[in-house]
Design a binder for these strands. Structure first.
Length: 104
DNA sequence: GCAGTGACTAGTA
DNA sequence: ATACTAGCCACTG
């Protein structure tokens, strides 16, 4: 069922994000050993099956938001999940990266 | 094997 | 502050 090794690596990295923290796509790509492949991270998560236990909601873009124009449902879901983990969102519904961004 | 696509990013206007 | 552009390269058809 592994479609590709790259996806697997990305999933592993996303799963490593501590609870209550978030990371950017570029950061995930870098930690996964794929520097500069931020888009691949997004692509991998787009293909992520619902059954997966990967905390995709902890992954946000550089603005602290997800672009999810093609799936606004997931956007609202993400907000609920982040809130349930104690992550604060500003009035623009963006994650406060300065405070919750994961730091290795 | 080639062409289109993209949950991105950083730069420019 | 927002809007648009180019660069990036693995994945899909």
């Amino acid at each position: 069922m592994r479609k590709s090794r790259t996806y697997f690596i990305i999933y592993e990295t996303v799963s490593a994000i501590p609870k209550g923290k978030v990371a950017t796509y570029g950061q995930i790509a870098r930690l996964a050993g794929l520097p500069g492949h931020a888009r691949l991270v997004g692509y991998a998560l787009h293909n992520l099956p619902d059954a997966s236990k990967v905390p995709w909601h902890r992954v946000v873009n550089s603005k602290g938001r997800i672009s999810l124009d093609s799936d606004p449902l997931a956007g609202s879901l993400q907000r609920a999940l982040l809130r349930s983990e104690g992550i604060a969102l500003d009035r623009d519904e963006a994650v406060v990266l300065g405070k919750f961004q994961w730091r290795k």
